[in-house]
Design a protein around this nucleic acid. Structure first.
Lengths: 315, 315
DNA sequence: GGTTGATATTGAAGAAATCAATAGTTGTAT
DNA sequence: ATACAACTATTGATTTCTTCAATATCAACC
């Protein structure tokens, strides 16, 4: 008794029946002739029957083959109907999805999943705003945005918060004072050489928290710096041989970051919680599910699964 | 777009829909729960849809799942119909198949394929006669037998001859005069110590041919020996520290044969051609095909694929 | 008998399916 | 709340399947 058969196997049989030639059928199915030969033979074995008479040119069905071919065709047709249903169901996802995402996350997270979504859901118009936490929460409350991706938790209890993953912080050191062999803790950081983004970014307040500073005393730098871009921050840190803390995903940008400048923190590892917020009345629940799953899936292989982390609030 | 899906995947979905529980569905399908989880997830991925709501207890279909499930059921039903057709087609092979096979082959060849045939074709009554070439050809002509398995060619041109494989001859030496390191040719055989089966066996005349004797002069042995059984021949050879030639398949019987007694012949390797003969009016052509394929398949891994062989006629 | 045009086979590489064990989740009863 | 129970998800290892490129084999036609 046949245990399991795949639609590919059926496709191969139908192609061979149609063309009467192994090589042509193989071309039709975009596989090599050896693959087709082997798969036909495998199916014949599973059935305990010889379906094709290889001696005749063109190749024809045997008596047993004749008895099966119609049912195989039928199954394949029903499979094609299934495909149409799937296609149709996918197209039921339509409309606009307006996403707000914090700037310290956007350039590293979006490339991981956005393309797949845009491709799979051609009927959804995605719009992305790279804005701060404050701006995101404001716009979600006013329903200008559907979904916010940011560091959790937010103080506002009205909005729905869904956790996605924890992103640890790492040391980025352009000064050369850190060494590969040692384990660094938070207190090892020389606060006077630390550079941050402008205050409005949650990343800044988180780093301040990590380093146990009330407010960062930037007057120690002889340079006024206001930027929301991690790229600019890195330039600045490099130029001044300073240091900063970077979230994990940022450190994986091999074209921006010298891996030799990155040092892990331990005991515990400071981290931020990344998650999604929505308005309680947000209705595209299913779309949210998909977004959640896709983001989690895309990020997972990039994160280390450490236990000893300490989540830092963004406010 | 889904490229290929297997009936097992569908089975898993239907089981999960039916039971509302991953573990129960897994039991139903005789796989582990992890397998079922993974396969459901895989299908969901292929479809780009989430088919089951894991949060509800029992687990239920999502809206998208509902849209697919009926088509999945339909496909699976048609697959079950296919199985029935296959079953039915297999049962069309019925009736008697009377096989004659030479004694020097039967005990080594039959176990390789007979069981599979008997199992796969429960409606065929197989009957096996272990008889000599002469007897086989006689009975096929009189239609007492359907099929003969023996050493080809036979002189009788009326019967249909189909080749199966070539079986080489090896030296079986109980005297200890052969040594592992040397390559032996036919002329190295001391004819005076050679033992054979009784004359009626084609194996005897083939060995005589190999050793270039007109008729074996058995008077050199002080023992009259008449047996058709290779087992008895081996006993005799062991007892008298003699030697004989054995066909390849016989030498593979590890329980009968000391591997250290076996020596290869080279330049060229003498061999017999094993094949099937049938009466020209034999009608169960398809059955013959199956038999041919099964024997070839079962024997293939046991034979070495040498080029330099010399086929020895059995008459 | 060799040449041509086909199918079959082989050996290797990559992907998929499966399992046992374990981690993580959720709901319930303390 | 907290711990337990019941369930699903994940992991890492193993086996099996699928596929390909290259090659062997077969068959028909000169």
């Amino acid at each position: 008794m046949i245990s399991s058969i795949s639609t590919n196997q059926i496709k191969y049989v139908l192609a061979l029946e149609k063309t009467g030639s192994f090589s042509e059928a193989a071309d039709l199915c975009f596989v090599t002739q050896s693959t087709l030969s082997i798969m036909i033979k495998k199916l014949e074995n599973q059935c305990n029957l010889i379906l094709f008479d290889r001696k005749s040119k063109p190749i024809t069905l045997t008596k047993e083959g004749e008895e099966l071919i119609n049912q195989l065709k039928l199954i394949y047709q029903e499979f094609e109907v299934l495909q149409e249903i799937i296609q149709g169901t996918n197209q039921e996802f339509y409309g606009n999805l307006r996403i707000g995402i914090i700037p310290t996350l956007a350039p590293f997270l979006l490339p991981l999943f956005l393309n797949k979504l845009v491709t799979n859901y051609p009927n959804i118009n995605f719009s992305i705003d790279e804005i701060t936490t404050q701006e995101i929460t404001k716009r979600i409350k006013t329903r200008e945005l559907d979904i916010g991706i940011l560091s959790l938790p937010i103080e506002d209890q009205e909005l729905i918060q869904t956790s996605l993953f924890n992103e640890s912080f790492l040391i980025y050191d352009a000064s050369g004072t850190f060494s590969r062999n040692k384990k660094y803790k938070i207190k090892d950081i020389d606060v006077s050489r630390l550079w941050l983004l402008e205050e409005s970014h949650c990343l800044s307040s988180q780093i301040e928290k990590i380093c146990l500073l009330k407010k960062m005393d930037t007057s120690k730098h002889n340079l006024e710096f206001k930027s929301g871009s991690i790229l600019s921050l890195l330039e600045l840190v490099n130029m001044n041989k300073g240091l900063t803390l970077l979230p994990k995903l940022a450190t994986l940008q091999k074209n921006l970051i010298k891996p030799s400048y990155i040092f892990n923190l331990v005991n515990p590892i400071p981290a931020r919680e990344i998650g999604i917020i929505t308005h309680p009345n947000f209705s595209k629940k299913r779309l949210l599910d998909i977004l959640e799953i896709e983001i989690k899936k895309s990020v997972k292989p990039l994160l280390d699964k450490t236990k000893r982390i300490q989540l830092i609030n963004p406010y």
